[in-house]
């Protein structure tokens, strides 16, 4: 537990260190440049809320869930087609049979590299150092995915689609690319090696909104995110084959500013090898905060 609080403190301190350079107009800077969410991973672009959950009474030595990432957006004077950030995140789950205990830190980016009239094309990626406490595995990881953006049309990508006099909105965000992982060192024999995983993801959400706006505050949202991947190249002794991760659920919104607060229920099924999440399936009810 002490280590958990230590990691959370490091995450907050890293953010504070960078933010100290921006004392002037701190509120505006914080609102626009610091993101706190479930994960800063390239694939998690629907920005699920950060989660911290404890259970009482405790039947085990540890019984808690932490899913949190903090990112500080880096600025660049020369271009406006590139946004990058430094991020740290921590995922620990002792509430299910398959425990997860993973820390990562790295660099993420979104790059608008082409415009083809009907849509703009982006590459989203990240480079990470990852540590999996469960088998003391140190890795370097990288994810590179392509996606498209389209707005102002009847069917938009990576932005909102409004229907029913703007009372209903839905999002579609497709991604395709690959993920690389170099496992440098592990307590487990045969774990070290290189893995290349082609992967794709489809993120969707459907929300009912308040009448007042724009912007339109969400009342209730249903979401479904699916990721599939396969270890096309794997020099470790542990073949993964096709792995998938499904995260679907519903959120009811309670507050919108300065943090978005919602209460929700979700169903999670699958694995995420890069983040040390082994195959598991569980339901979760939680109060969520998204900044």
């Amino acid at each position: 537990m002490k280590r958990l609080w230590g990691i959370l403190c490091i995450m907050v301190c890293c953010t504070g260190e960078l933010s100290a350079q921006k004392a002037a107009g701190f509120k505006g800077w914080f609102i626009n440049n610091v993101k706190i969410a479930n994960s800063m991973r390239t694939l998690d672009l629907s920005e699920q809320p950060a989660q911290l959950q404890l259970t009482f009474p405790r039947y085990q030595a540890h019984s808690y869930l932490v899913n949190m990432g903090i990112a500080v957006i880096l600025n660049n004077n020369t271009t406006l087609n590139y946004i990058s950030d430094l991020n740290v995140e921590y995922h620990r789950n002792t509430l299910t049979d398959a425990e997860q205990n993973n820390f990562s830190a790295g660099y993420g980016f979104k790059w608008r590299f082409a415009n083809a009239g009907a849509a703009d094309y982006f590459m989203a990626g990240d480079l990470q150092y990852l540590y999996n406490e469960l088998n003391a595995t140190n890795s370097l990881g990288g994810t590179f995915l392509l996606t498209l953006f389209r707005d102002g049309k009847r069917l938009n990508w990576n932005t909102n689609n409004f229907r029913l006099n703007n009372r209903l909105l839905f999002n579609l965000a497709p991604f395709a690319g690959f993920q690389m992982q170099e496992i440098l060192k592990s307590r487990q024999n045969g774990m070290a090696g290189f893995i290349l995983r082609p992967e794709f993801s489809i993120n969707t959400s459907l929300a009912f909104c308040k009448k007042a706006g724009p912007p339109y505050d969400k009342l209730l949202a249903i979401f479904c995110n699916y990721t599939g991947r396969d270890d096309a190249i794997n020099t470790t002794s542990f073949k993964e084959h096709y792995t998938q991760l499904l995260h679907t659920g519903i959120n009811y919104y309670l507050a919108y500013s300065p943090f978005e607060v919602s209460i929700g229920a979700s169903f999670n099924d699958g694995s995420d090898p890069l983040n040390g999440r082994t195959q598991q399936q569980y339901w979760q009810v939680s109060v969520n905060f998204l900044k």
Binding site: I31, N32, L45, E47, L80, N81, Y82, I83, K110, R112, D120, F122, T147, F149, D151, N158, T159, P214, P215, D217, Y256, S257, P258, E260
Partner: peptide, 22 residues
Amino acid sequence: LADSALMSGFGFNDYQWIELAF
């Protein structure tokens, strides 16, 4: 759209910020 509306209320992701800058 009110002048006083907060940009954070739009919940823009990074793609939307880049597109807005353009």
